[in-house]
């Protein structure tokens, strides 16, 4: 028997702290319009945190601030132990290889095929990867995101809205990031597709050990997959906790949000499901996903 061994070179350290995202005293304003006023938020390692709030409360602005697209007026933001607010553009590049972002509309590069879209971050950060391996990676990421294999060679304009989101997720996962940012991942999907997408995110999160920052309006998503929920109102995060913890609070917006007709329906669905003891599903589930 031949004995060969390959020792792999050391690479950027895995983040070891407990809070991959720490936001302190964040202030964002556009002209006179103040969006955030002293916002604090800690995201725990390995959790799915859902961010909710009425329209215009600055959920997306918060996400854009954390990933460095929006420069806040004041406050500090730390991602994976490094400051985003102090970083220069060229310095924070190695943080960027450790997060993946899914924008609302998918934000796929329209002149590239789905597979090429997934390959963009790989080319950018790891040019040493051979073409062969890169194609293989792109292929399994696309399949992992619940798209059929023949979608890899399609252009974004040939995809439906749900497929674009999956392709966007595949691109967000291209570098096996520790952090995943999702901006309304289930908005615009049919209920079956949305439920499948929720399952997909949960199972990916469990398998890959991701920390997920998830903006959503979808109460089902909150009940199904979020470990904790952060509520944005009055220019701050007014509460963070599990849904039962939030329900115990006496804030009018929170009460209305979770106890409105839609909130109750989502809760009932959750109760029914937990009564019938469903095992957390693994990736095998994604086979049942809708094929647009």
């Amino acid at each position: 028997m031949n004995d060969s061994s390959a020792h792999l070179a050391e690479i950027p350290d895995e983040f070891e702290g407990d809070f991959p995202i720490r936001v302190r005293g964040l202030i964002n304003r556009f002209g006179d319009h103040v969006i955030h006023d002293g916002l604090d938020l800690d995201v725990k390692r390995g959790e799915i945190i859902g961010v909710v709030g009425g329209s215009g409360t600055g959920k997306s602005v918060l996400m854009r601030s954390i990933i460095g697209l929006q420069i806040p007026a004041e406050g500090s933001i730390e991602v994976l132990g490094r400051s985003i607010t102090d970083a220069r553009d060229d310095e924070d590049i190695d943080i960027r290889s450790q997060w993946g972002v899914l924008f609302q509309g998918g934000a796929l590069f329209s002149t590239l095929t789905v597979a090429e879209n997934v390959e963009v971050p790989l080319r950018e950060f790891y040019p040493e990867i051979t073409d062969e391996l890169r194609h293989e990676i792109a292929r399994y990421k696309v399949l992992l995101s619940g798209l059929p294999a023949n979608a890899t060679s399609k252009y974004p304009s040939e995809l439906s809205g749900g497929m674009k989101k999956r392709a966007g997720l595949a691109r967000a996962l291209a570098l096996d990031p520790e952090l995943l940012f999702l901006d309304e991942p289930t908005a615009g999907l049919d209920p079956i597709g949305a439920a499948a997408f929720d399952n997909l995110i949960r199972s990916l999160q469990e398998t890959l050990g991701l920390t997920v920052f998830l903006i959503t309006h979808d109460l089902d998503t909150l009940y199904e997959i979020c470990d904790r929920v952060a509520v944005l109102a009055d220019k701050k995060v007014i509460a963070v906790g599990t849904i039962p913890e939030l329900l115990a609070l006496d804030h009018p917006w929170i009460q209305e949000y979770f106890n409105g007709p839609r909130g109750r329906a989502a809760k009932d669905a959750q109760d029914r499901e937990s009564a019938s003891v469903v095992q957390p599903s693994l990736l095998a589930d994604t086979g049942a996903m809708e094929q647009e």
Binding site: M1, N2, S4, A6, H7, L8, I11
Partner: peptide
Amino acid sequence: MLRFSGPMVVSSLGLVDRRLRHISESV
């Protein structure tokens, strides 16, 4: 037998991929 050690992640595998594809010994 082929033995791996160290981190097997996207940033480290690009460097050894070519060698791995051309293993001729039986494993």
